[in-house]
Amino acid sequence: MTIAYWTVAGLLALFYLYAGAVKVARSRDRLRPMMAWVDRTPLSAVRALGTVELLGASGLILPPLTGIAPWLALAAAIGFVLLQAGAVAVHLTGEDRQITLNVGLIASTAVLIWLATTWL
C-alpha cells in the first residue's frame, strides 16, 4: 500500500503543482487556450484556485513524508475531490463541456483517499 499511495499521490501532486502554478503565474490571455472558463471567472478567483491547488499538492506529500499531522493528506485529497466536482459543474454550465480530465482526477483521488485511509 505504501508504494501505491506514494505513486498516486506523487502523480496527483505533480499535476496539481503544475496546474496551480500556471493559474497563479499566467495572464488571462495565456490561460484562455487551455481553460475556456477563465473568461467567466474573475482573475482573483483563478489565482485563488491556483493557490489552493499548490497548497493541496503539498498537503498530499509533506504530512505523510514528515510524519507531522498525516491526516492532512486525507483532508487534501477530499478537498481535491470537492474541487473537481466544482470544476465539473463549471465545465457543464459553460461552452466547453470537456469533463473527461476532471472525472479522471476524481477517480484517481478517490483511489488515493482509499489508500490514505488504509495506509495512514
Rank of each mutant, 00 (worst) to 15 (best):
M1D: 10
M1G: 13
T2F: 11
I3M: 09
I3H: 05
A4K: 06
A4S: 14
A4R: 07
A4C: 10
Y5V: 12
W6L: 13
V8H: 04
A9Y: 14
A9V: 13
A9E: 15
A9M: 13
G10P: 08
G10H: 01
L12N: 10
A13C: 09
A13E: 05
F15Q: 05
F15G: 02
Y16M: 13
L17R: 08
Y18V: 15
A19N: 11
G20E: 10
V22G: 01
V24D: 09
V24S: 05
A25P: 01
A25V: 02
A25N: 03
A25R: 08
R26M: 15
R26D: 15
S27C: 06
R28V: 14
L31D: 10
R32H: 08
R32I: 04
R32P: 04
R32W: 02
R32A: 12
P33I: 06
M35T: 03
A36V: 00
V38H: 11
V38A: 05
L43D: 14
V46D: 06
V46K: 10
A48F: 13
A48H: 02
L49V: 04
T51P: 01
V52Y: 07
L54G: 06
L55W: 05
G56A: 08
S58D: 01
S58K: 00
S58C: 10
L60T: 00
L60P: 03
L62R: 00
P63H: 09
P63F: 10
P64I: 10
P64G: 12
P64F: 12
L65K: 02
T66W: 07
G67K: 05
I68H: 07
P70M: 00
P70I: 01
L74P: 12
A75R: 03
A76H: 06
A77Y: 03
A77E: 03
A77W: 06
F80D: 11
F80V: 07
L83R: 00
L83A: 09
Q84L: 11
G86R: 01
A87H: 03
A87G: 14
A89G: 06
V90L: 15
V90Y: 09
L92R: 15
T93C: 06
E95D: 06
E95P: 00
D96A: 14
D96N: 13
R97C: 09
Q98S: 11
I99A: 00
I99W: 05
L101G: 11
G104C: 09
G104V: 05
G104T: 06
G104R: 05
A107L: 15
S108L: 15
A110W: 04
A110L: 15
V111I: 15
L112C: 14
I113G: 06
I113H: 07
L115R: 04
A116T: 14
T117W: 10
T118I: 06
W119Q: 14
L120F: 03
L120M: 13
